[in-house]
Amino acid sequence: MEFQNQQIDTLILPSSETIIFEKLDPAYKKIRIYINIIIFSILLLLYLSAGIFFRFLLDFPWILLFSIGWSILFGLSTFMAIKRYDYEGFAIREKDIMFKSGIFFRSTLIIPFNRVQHCEIEQGPIDRFFNLSELSLFTAGGSGSDLMIPGLTHEKSAALKNFITKRVAVSDEEE
């Protein structure tokens, strides 16, 4: 292919600033809440069963302290699990894919399709129950540059994988 290096007007570069991100599947929010409930129930059970052996744990100051601490942490992490969902999203353009996440510490990762090495769908046991899966894209840029989109319906991640694989193939041909 002939080498070209045309000058471009930098004001008309496609902007990544105004992208509208697509949300993850609402079921994924539920999964996070359920997992949170399970973890905190186990904590509660552990404390109570420890109380069988150490009676004082069930007496006045300790049980009160534990219930206050437990309630605050449970409330906070449930709130975070719900809120997190609002800050996560992915967007696909013609030539790249991006994923943003984080309530307080926000990050956005962007990968051009012509740098994708391979692409994978993963599904854990809980995911399978809700018919969700996680899409992973790997580049040659090391683990920090691998993009993972959780909480997609299985059909959607399969469709995305299909789309991306085609895109990767197209860009390979161009090169």
């Binding site: 307080f104 510490f105 926000r106 990050s107 956005t108 990762l109 962007i110 990968i111 051009p112 740098r115 580049t139 040659a140 840029g141 090391g142 920090g144 540059s145 993009l147």
Partner: peptide, 26 residues
């Protein structure tokens, strides 16, 4: 030659319209 790009913001950076950018290469 970049492989991927990452924009990262701490809460402080978000308030002040600042960000870190990481250029991932192979």
């Amino acid at each position: 030659k970049i492989q991927a790009l990452k924009i990262h913001q701490t809460p402080y950076q978000t308030r002040h319209q600042l960000a870190d950018i990481t250029l991932h290469t192979a």
